[in-house]
Design a protein around this nucleic acid. Structure first.
Lengths: 204, 204
DNA sequence: CAAAAAGCGGTACGCTTGTCCCACTTTAAT
DNA sequence: ATTAAAGTGGGACAAGCGTACCGCTTTTTG
């Protein structure tokens, strides 16, 4: 009755918590992430998560004290994975030009529309629930860092303003691309990014 | 039993629909919009809307064949009003510089965080429900038009690319401002916009 | 004026939801 | 070995949900 097996800092398993329990908790989180991608925020219910993870219903209440906590943890995990993936994609495409990098990153995420929509959904939710604020900021900061790295590596080191400028523009374009998938939009988005980069690199 | 009083094209009341019924329908829509702003998508339930509008529960089912339709109509109304308000705000601030205009628009929307969050929430939902796609695009197009007008009036007529560039950047900044309200963010956002405008106007 | 259509609203059904309870087994500590 | 804690899972609960039903009144139509 003391409390379920929370992930203590450092990822190290706490004394007294069993191995299997941690794996089950992760399975639940994975299921939650998947469901969020498939059906959005409202699809992440205790029952759906439990069934997806192949774990009895009561377990979800055992590992997460409330649905809000479950969603918040799923959000954090999603952000973490997203940034990891983005960093990897950026590193892989770091050699070519900036526009080419942007195109590579875009390709990486193309088959992942649902998950991205879910991520934005939760990000928006953070505007209403202060408990999610911290995670939302982590996402933004991480993304800005990636853009900064990318700009640096391309030989155009920028101040915070320029980084913010490019990062926000790309985010906005991407969100629009995600929501309204109009024909020809990806190409136009690419041109818009190129124009922004030109403005930063050529102009001074 | 034929069907409730739908708003036929042109806004003209159909023969056979009563005046009061249309007003009630609008009252329900207004209530839905308010609730969306206060509590987000999930707060828009039949019961909450009915109670807020001072109208019995069954009426919501009478005027809207389903919750989805109610939400969709509320979304459309919200977009319509938002664009109207934005246009008015833009016209009012059209005299000064672009950055000053941006600042005025920002001030107009400051006390309206909830409604803006709801709007974005529905916009995001449009990524999953094709029925909302059309409304989402209307919002985007309308916003782009406003930006175009603003740029034109300031003596910097732009092509579609530039308009898209500025509009998307401002949207992104605005969304970030809305979700994470960090101290000092509005100022930094202003600078970022100024930089973007400089890039467009000075550079060529 | 009669009949049909539209508007109205109380009520209830069926379902899903989050969460809790409690008996049970397994693991860890003493 | 004994005792406490952690893990486990079946079941049930109240609350909230969308929606349909159905008798009623009001308005419009012919």
């Amino acid at each position: 009755m003391t409390g379920p097996a929370r992930r203590e800092e450092g990822g190290k398993s706490r004394r007294g918590t069993q191995e299997r329990a941690l794996r089950r908790r992760e399975a639940l989180l994975d299921a939650a992430v998947d469901l969020l991608g498939e059906g959005g925020f409202t699809a992440v219910t205790h029952r759906a998560v439990a069934e997806r993870a192949g774990i009895p219903l009561a377990a979800t209440s055992y590992y997460f004290s409330s649905r809000d906590e479950l969603v918040a943890d799923a959000f954090a995990l999603l952000v973490e994975r997203d940034l990891l993936r983005m960093r990897a994609s950026a590193a892989e495409a770091g050699a070519g030009s900036l526009v080419e990098s942007a195109r590579t990153i875009l390709r990486t995420y193309a088959p992942d529309r649902g998950r991205q929509l879910g991520l934005w959904e939760l990000y928006l939710q953070a505007g209403r629930e202060p408990a999610l604020q911290h995670i939302a900021r982590t996402w933004t900061d991480g993304w800005h860092d990636i853009v900064r790295t990318l700009l640096d590596r391309a030989g155009h080191p920028c101040g915070d303003d320029e980084v913010r400028f490019v990062a926000t523009l790309v985010s906005g374009l991407w969100l629009e691309l995600l929501v309204e998938d109009r024909p020809g939009s990806p190409e136009r988005a690419g041109e818009t990014v190129a124009r922004a980069l030109r403005a930063i690199t050529e102009c001074r």
